[in-house]
């Protein structure tokens, strides 16, 4: 299982790098999907198949589809590729990269200094255990997330409401506007 972990982790890191360095937006999204699937693979290797499958269903299967959807609608052509190419010069990315590299070195040193138990035990965490944990110690989080979701649903309903389905307002509207105009001219 450790080989699977290291291979999947390497794929995740490389594909995420390509997300940043890709000039074409759809190609970058494709690499991001590969990266997410690789992370799911890491979960599988660590003995959490439930988390891995949910990662693919939620992130790769739903959220990234919406990303691709939006990029497709924007219909970015060759012009945006040229623009990206001009933005992607060393002057832009050297500064942030150096700072992030410093943080990476600090983290690596901290990781190797600390006496960790960095072995994969292969302990399997299945759906039932995840459910028991969610409705046991983490029940507050589940409730808060459900409230957030409810707010999202209500907002979506409000935004997506079809006004043409309500005949009373449609009949009143022109009359009101007319009287309003009257008052304005007077």
């Amino acid at each position: 299982m450790e080989y699977a972990f290291y291979i999947a982790a390497a794929v995740a890191v490389l594909s995420t790098l390509r997300v940043v360095t890709s000039i074409n937006a759809v190609h970058a999204l494709l690499y991001l999907i590969v990266s997410l699937i690789a992370v799911a693979m890491v979960f599988f290797a660590l003995g959490a198949p439930f988390a891995g499958v949910l990662e693919i269903i939620v992130y790769a299967g739903a959220i990234m589809v919406l990303f691709v959807f939006v990029v497709m609608m924007l219909n970015l052509g060759q012009a945006s590729v040229e623009q990206e190419k001009s933005w992607f010069n060393p002057r832009m990315w050297v500064g942030p990269s150096v700072m992030v590299a410093v943080m990476l070195i600090v983290m690596l040193v901290a990781l190797f200094e600390s006496p960790g138990t960095g072995m994969i035990t292969g302990e399997l965490i299945d759906a039932k255990m995840v459910g028991k944990a969610l409705y046991g110690p983490y029940v507050l989080m589940v409730e808060l997330a459900s409230m957030l979701l409810l707010a999202g649903v209500i907002t979506a309903y409000h935004l997506g409401r079809d006004d043409s389905m309500r005949p009373t307002r449609e009949m009143n509207e022109p009359k009101q506007r007319l009287s309003h105009d009257h008052r304005g001219t007077r």
Binding site: G52, V53, L54, I57, A60, G61, V65, L124, D126, A127
Partner: peptide
């Protein structure tokens, strides 16, 4: 042991 979820993942892909 995540059999059915695997199908959903593949349907998503």
């Amino acid at each position: 042991n995540v059999g059915l979820l695997f199908f959903f993942a593949m349907a998503g892909v």
